[in-house]
Design a protein around this nucleic acid. Structure first.
Lengths: 128, 128
DNA sequence: TAACTGTATTATTATAGTTAATACGGTTTG
DNA sequence: CAAACCGTATTAACTATAATAATACAGTTA
């Protein structure tokens, strides 16, 4: 269910946070859906429950999930939360990079191919 | 001269490597230019000489600089590699930005439209 | 010769991530 | 009610890596 690389420099708990965030944003996990319990998740991916707890605590503090002691952890309603400001910033970035590439004679078609590649990778493994 | 964040998760020596690489690729540092000595650089940015040494060793092994014991460390001739490496760097950037945009639900087609827009602007007024 | 270079080595400290072992109280289920 | 789940909290220990510290050696330069 989750894609963790234990020897990455990115801490496990943070990989978990990123993974779950993405699944929430992409609606793979839906509003009020129950996440695996701390202990079950720990068993599933064979890491320590405390590491899961840390990830869940982080996700909760960022508003992606909410936890009910005794019941479980659930996906928050994030419908209206996606940051248009961040998108705008990234689009500016994109413009800059694209212009530099074109300046260096990289054809537009090549750039679009790279966009497709990035998207394909994104779907494959969800990494950044 | 260099832009180091000692409390970043990226190790100092790696920040140094990235910094210097970029300056070489962008021709801020020119061929055969002398870099600050290990000890002087350590003094300048108040970190341990061994950390500088580690960065220089890395840069040398990647061919960005060459070192002459007793004389100093110097920028390699990267004339024929710079352009392709710069492109590579930009393509990595592109990949990152695109993935983040997709992560934020921006459709691939929208991204490609932005690529076209950037190209059009590029042709119009020649800006970067 | 003195002061600089790169290079190497060994030991130590600091920090962050992770694991481990428990514990407590709420919830669900049989 | 009791057992088996839940989230949560705490403390200690282990690990890996980055960074520091203290030297040392040999080549170069002024």
């Amino acid at each position: 269910m989750f894609d963790i690389d234990v020897r990455s420099r990115v801490p496990i708990y943070e990989q978990l946070v990123d993974n779950i965030k993405m699944m929430i944003i992409q609606n793979v996990l839906e509003k009020d859906e129950k996440l695996p319990s701390v202990r079950k998740m720990a068993q599933e991916i064979t890491i320590n429950p405390n590491t899961i707890q840390k990830a869940y605590r982080e996700l909760e503090s960022e508003g992606y999930i909410y936890s009910l002691p005794g019941k479980g952890s659930f996906v928050s309603d994030t419908k209206n939360t996606v940051s248009s400001q961040k998108i705008e910033m990234l689009e500016d970035n994109l413009e800059g990079v694209v212009k530099e590439l074109i300046y260096l004679q990289v054809p537009v078609e090549k750039i679009k191919t790279l966009v497709d590649l990035a998207e394909a990778e994104m779907r494959e493994d969800g990494n950044q």
